[in-house]
C-alpha cells in the first residue's frame, strides 16, 4: 500500500492496460455497442474497489495524464482545419444544423432537469452531454458539475448515437450525406463519428468537423443555459 501511495506510474499503467484489454476485446467482439473506453473505466473502478485502493491513491499516480488534456483538446483544430473546404461549401446548412443541435441538446437537459428534479450541480453536470469528452469534461468542471458523471453520461450518449444513428437516419428520412454527418457529429461526438465513416467518407468528415464546432458552440451557449436552473 505504501508503494502504491508513492508510485507515480501505477495509475497510468493500470489505465493503459485496462484500455488495451478493452481495445483487444473490441476486436474480438466486433459490436458497436462495446466501447473500450467505458470498459476500461469500469474495469479500473472494479479493481480499485476489490483491492480497496482509495481513488486518491489512484489519482495521485495518474494525474500526470491530466497534463495532456488541454494540449490534446487544442489539436482538434487540426481535423477541423483539414475539413475547412467542406465547411465552406455547405456553410449555411452546417452552421444552422449544428446550432439547432446544440440548442436542442441544452433544452432537452433543461427539460429533463425539471422532470427529474435535478439540483443545479446535477444540471450543469448533464449540460455538456452531447459534446466530445475532452471539451465536456472541462466545461463541466468550470460550471461546477461532477466531472466523473459527465464523462459517463457523455460516453453513454456517444454509444447510443453510434448504435442508433444509422437507423435514425432512415426513420427520420435524412437523405443528404452532409445532414447525416451534422446529425451524428452534433449528437454523439467522437464515438458517433467512427460510425459515420462507415456510412461514407462525407458523413464521417462532416461529423468530425461538426463535433468540434458543436463543442465550441455548446461552451458558449452553456454560459446562458447554466443560469436557467
Amino acid at each position: 500500500m505504501d508503494f502504491l501511495n508513492s508510485s507515480v506510474f501505477f495509475g497510468t499503467v493500470l489505465s493503459l492496460l485496462a484500455y488495451f484489454l478493452g481495445f483487444y476485446l473490441k476486436k474480438l467482439i466486433k459490436k458497436n455497442w462495446f466501447n473500450p473506453f467505458l470498459f476500461a473505466v469500469i474495469l479500473v473502478i472494479v479493481i480499485l474497489l476489490i483491492f480497496k485502493i482509495p481513488y486518491k491513491t489512484f489519482y495521485n499516480s495518474s494525474k500526470y495524464l491530466d497534463f495532456l488534456l488541454t494540449p490534446a483538446t487544442v489539436c482538434f483544430a487540426i481535423p477541423l482545419y483539414e475539413k475547412t473546404h467542406i465547411l465552406k461549401k455547405n456553410f449555411k446548412a452546417i452552421a444552422i444544423g449544428i446550432l439547432t443541435g446544440v440548442i436542442t441538446s441544452l433544452s432537452c437537459i433543461w427539460a429533463a432537469a425539471k422532470i427529474f428534479g435535478f439540483t443545479h450541480n446535477e444540471y450543469v453536470t448533464m449540460l455538456p452531454k452531447s459534446v466530445t469528452v475532452a471539451i465536456g469534461m472541462d466545461l463541466s468542471k468550470s460550471l461546477g458539475g461532477y466531472t466523473g458523471i459527465t464523462v459517463a453520461v457523455i460516453t453513454i450518449t456517444g454509444i447510443t448515437g453510434s448504435v442508433l444513428c444509422p437507423f435514425l437516419c432512415k426513420i427520420f428520412k435524412i437523405q443528404s450525406s452532409v445532414a447525416k454527418g451534422v446529425g451524428i457529429g452534433s449528437c454523439s461526438h467522437i464515438l458517433g463519428t467512427s460510425e459515420a465513416y462507415n456510412l461514407g467518407e462525407t458523413e464521417g468528415a462532416v461529423s468530425s468537423l461538426s463535433l468540434v464546432i458543436a463543442g465550441i458552440l455548446t461552451v458558449f451557449a452553456a454560459m446562458l443555459f447554466s443560469n436557467l436552473h
Binding site: K92, A93, I94, I96, G97, I98, T100, G101, T104, S105, C108, I109, A112, F116, M126, K129, S130, V153, I156, T157, T160, G161, L164, C165, L168, C169, F172, I174, Q175, S176, V178, A179, K180, V182, G183, I184, S186, C187, S188
Partner: peptide, 20 residues
C-alpha cells in the same frame, strides 16, 4: 435523459440541415 435527448438532437440537427 442521455438516450432520449440523443434521439431528439439527431432529429433536430440532421433534419434541419437536410431541409436546407
Amino acid at each position: 435523459t442521455a438516450i432520449v435527448s440523443t434521439v431528439i438532437v439527431m432529429f433536430a440537427a440532421g433534419k434541419i440541415t437536410d431541409i436546407i
